[in-house]
Amino acid sequence: MAHWDGIEAFVEVVRLGTFAAAARRLNVSNSHVSRQVALLEQELGLPLLYRTTRQIHLTDAGERYYARCRELLDGFREAEFDLQSLQERPHGVLKLGCATTFGERFIAPLVNDFLRLHPQLEMRLYLTNRQVDVIDEGYDVVVRMGTLQDSSLVARRLCERREFVVASPSYFQGVSQPHSVAELSQHRCLIGTRDQWRFDIDGLHREVRVSGPWHANSGLALLDAALKGLGLAQLPDYYVMPYLARGELVDVLTAFQCRDAGVWAVMPHHRQHAAKVRQFVDYLVDNLPGLLEQACDGNPA
């Protein structure tokens, strides 16, 4: 029977793409991972990986072996977490990631409320606009917004989130409102952390690259620029709804509004059943929609 350490090293190398990433995930040296995979191949009598200076590729035997071993390893980890979940009180350290502004405004207050209920839990909250690697960086939960890309992560929808393309009435005194996504090229677009805006076009999610003279990595700065007539901006509902209600902003391109831009909790498959993860995500599902609704109504969150 192949050594368990070798199977775990092999699966993590394939899952993460490099020996170095697998070594970090397993908290061992690169040479240890390489040695374990080599011993596994020797014991099986077949090569599992093709190695180059830049990439690794599975052999035909490696593809078949990885599919079975990944299920085995994930099942083993799920069994461990199932036993832990028998202890209904969340315990240990929960590592959580979220985008900066959304995290500061909505997630951090809920984290603090949850810790008041479970003081035995330790929280590590990381706020960053960088797209973190959930598995490689050891996160238990990451809150993401928008339309999710396909991945091996488990995702749970926390609440709705709509994005509006808006401008002030003063901006439209000099230009006509756009009626198609293609017309955005004729407008001054105010750009936040991303220069690709999300739309639904002909029933498909599309990302459309926009350009303009104004860039900032702050949603509040983007909102202020739109209110002062500097151009068009795409912003989520909790920023713009009070201003739309008062007529201080006008929304356009509503026919192309992305219908699947929710707020999600994503987590590794083998961690979703841990008590600390399950109960914290449940808490977000129960409480986050209310905070966002208050913000959309113009009340402090």
Rank of each mutant, 00 (worst) to 15 (best):
V143S: 03
A108M: 06
N112A: 03
M123D: 03
E122N: 10
M123L: 02
V111W: 09
D150Y: 09
R162L: 14
R157K: 14
H187A: 05
R116G: 08
V142K: 00
E163F: 13
V142W: 00
R188V: 09
G192S: 08
Y171N: 11
R157E: 15
D150Q: 13
V132L: 05
G174R: 07
R188P: 10
R157I: 06
R161V: 06
H118Y: 12
V181Y: 07
A108C: 05
L121M: 11
P119W: 05
S168T: 03
Q177H: 11
E160T: 13
P169V: 04
R144N: 12
F172P: 14
D150M: 11
V134H: 01
T193C: 12
H118V: 04
E183C: 02
R116I: 10
L190F: 03
S152W: 08
V154I: 02
S185M: 13
S176Y: 09
V134T: 01
Q177V: 10
R157G: 07
Y139V: 00
C189V: 08
A167E: 04
R162E: 15
T128V: 10
F114C: 10
S151N: 04
F106K: 02
A182W: 14
G174C: 04
Y139C: 01
R162D: 15
R124K: 14
V142A: 00
L121Y: 07
V166G: 10
V181D: 14
R130P: 06
I191V: 09
S185T: 15
V141R: 01
I135V: 03
E163G: 12
V132M: 06
L190G: 04
D113A: 11
V111K: 06
I191A: 08
E183R: 02
S180W: 00
D140C: 01
E160H: 14
D113M: 10
I135R: 00
L153R: 01
A182R: 13
I191T: 10
H179V: 05
A155G: 07
M123V: 00
P109A: 06
S152P: 11
V111N: 09
A167H: 02
C159V: 06
V132T: 07
L117Y: 09
V111L: 07
R157M: 13
S185Q: 15
G192T: 06
L125N: 06
P169F: 03
H187L: 10
Y171T: 06
D150G: 08
